[in-house]
Write a protein that binds this DNA or RNA. Structure first.
Length: 279
DNA sequence: AGCTACTCCTGGTAGC
DNA sequence: TGCTACCAGGAGTAGC
């Protein structure tokens, strides 16, 4: 599913064909893509603007717009489970799952989403949407010092805590499982019981996992995530635990286990990631 | 504060 | 073959 590395890949690969383009005409094919926004107001706000920057905050994709060289608001998109964004040449059929399209001065932008969870909204204040988010895990503000201090104040289990976007922003189910395995920490370990050595392992694991996944343009499986160029990522070949239930741990050979934590499938190695002591 | 359950969605697949 | 039931999950919300 699109998590930070996939979203970062989308932003990087979309930039060349989307930044600098003028949005001439909006087509809303699935109105709920816009959330509560009225589709005609959305079209009025967006048509005639130019995309001047495309950036990422956590799993959000933000396009800064200008009209006559003055700031004209922002598009804020979220791919959720199955969203895709791409710019095609005119006349290319985006398929049955296109939910929103922009005719550009060169090409056509498509937001494509099988499961219809994804959103693209228009706002003057993107901070209203992204303001509650925790630190970017690859940013300077996400120091080990801060991470360790934050862990000390929480009694939650590591798995749901790392999925909490207000704690650290951008991780999803896959990269949490992978990071915990790399750090040799059990997903049910209580955050405030992680000592400094272990919290540093986890901090490094999160950053290393995300960085390598970005290098490999994210993870693709099923028929879902693809880059804006239509290519699958390749990080799925690096998975140590995610989707490997019953298969041997690459590090110790024990069988990978799957449990459910907070309604999320959770994969770990029972030997490398020792269970927390029962309280 | 932090847990569970539920919602939104559809394609894929297991089971019969 | 064709049907049904269930699963995947990011994030928001409600209730305890």
């Amino acid at each position: 599913m699109p998590e930070l590395p996939e979203v970062e890949t989308v932003v990087r690969l979309l930039r060349p064909s989307f930044v600098g383009r003028r949005i001439q005409k909006v087509h809303v094919l699935w109105p709920r893509t816009l959330g509560d926004l009225d589709e005609f107001e959305f079209a009025r706000a967006v048509e005639g603007t130019r995309v001047v920057q495309l950036r990422r905050r956590a799993k959000y994709i933000i396009a800064d717009l200008e009209r006559r060289r003055r700031p004209a608001g922002h598009l804020v998109g979220h791919l959720r489970m199955t969203g895709r964004m791409q710019v095609d040449r005119r006349g290319v059929d985006p398929g049955p799952y296109a939910r929103l399209s922009f005719e550009l001065d060169r090409g056509v932008f498509h937001f494509i989403d099988v499961r219809k969870f994804g959103r693209v909204c228009f706002t003057q204040e993107p901070e209203q949407i992204t303001g509650e988010l925790g630190p970017e895990p690859l940013g300077d503000e996400f120091s080990h010092e801060r991470f360790h201090a934050d862990l000390r104040t929480r009694r939650r289990m590591l798995k749901p805590l790392l999925l909490d976007q207000t704690f650290v922003a951008g991780l999803g189910n896959i990269y949490v499982d992978e990071s915990l395995h790399l750090a040799k920490l059990h997903p049910l370990r209580q955050a405030d019981r992680v000592d400094r050595t272990a919290s540093e392992r986890l901090w490094r694991a999160i950053r290393a996992t995300l960085e390598e996944a970005i290098e490999r343009e994210g993870s693709s499986f099923d028929t879902f995530y693809r880059t804006p160029e239509g290519q699958p990522g390749s990080y799925q070949h690096q998975f140590q635990v995610y989707g490997r239930t019953g298969k041997p741990c690459h590090r110790c050979g024990a069988k990978i286990r799957r449990i459910v934590v907070g309604q999320r499938g959770t994969h770990f190695c029972p030997r490398c990631q020792r269970a927390p002591r029962a309280r």
